[in-house]
Amino acid sequence: MNTKNEIPEVDIVVDEKAGVIREIKPEKLASKKANERRSNTIIYVILVLMSIIWLAPFVFLVFQSFRSYALEGGGMVDYLLPKTWSLDNYRWLFNPENSNFLRWYGNTFIIALFCSVIQTMMILSVSYTLSRLRFKGRKFIMNTVLVLGLFPGFLTMITLYFLLKQLGLTQTGAIPGLILIYCASSGMGYYISKGFFDTLPKSLDESARIDGATRFQVFLKIIMPLTKPIVIYTILMAFMAPWGDYVFASYVAFGSEPNYNVAVGLYRWVNVADYQGYFTRFCAGGVLVAVPITILFMCLQKYYVEGVTGGAVKG
């Protein structure tokens, strides 16, 4: 094919260990490329299959949420695509006369908002202190947190319930009660952000201290401006968690429907026999919860990745 006497493409690789320049023959290169193509194709096939598996439940959920309630009922069915598409379920949810859904949504939003502020402050205080300050009892605090973390969380549910009840923060007071519980011990989750503080050079503090800054000023003016990624990570985590809490939220708010969070309300629709034909409404409610959180998460994904990777590497 080649009329011109082309110089064959040669891949030259420097092998430091051998100390020689080696040359890879063009045939070998071609087969390598074919190999590469083949393995890439396999990977694409796997990735496409995985994407389908990972997205399928959510797509199905969305399909179900758009099923016509009037024509196909609200129960579970054995087919995927609705025969009639409609907004029946969403319309039903948005009418406060039908259910407390909007109220639950609002409750959860309030809880998430407060938690993201208070928890972030707690976690930052603890992680900053344990990372950058040295004082008597520091090691003791860290070991205590380690030991406490080994007790299963639901063990103390009944005690927390009655503690909250003493403060009047159950049933009708469930919203502030849940905020209190979520935040009170949140300082124990200092690990990831401590890992972050550990990576900031010590010289930053020291030079500022030499210039006469107090520790508070160092914290506020030198360190805080550098903590944006970890602050955003912490806020994101604190904001997302309350949306999924069923167990404790139902335990604190039982018997007071207007004070449920959205997880408790929706969970009951599919798991309490009193609610017949609520499945598609559950799906619609689930979509309404998932969409904003997913969007928020996607926007802040970068920070999430930094947080979990940092956390994993530093334990």
Partner: peptide, 11 residues
Amino acid sequence: VMTIAIPQFVS
């Protein structure tokens, strides 16, 4: 990553 974002009680 979408599976992380969507609350588990839904998914």
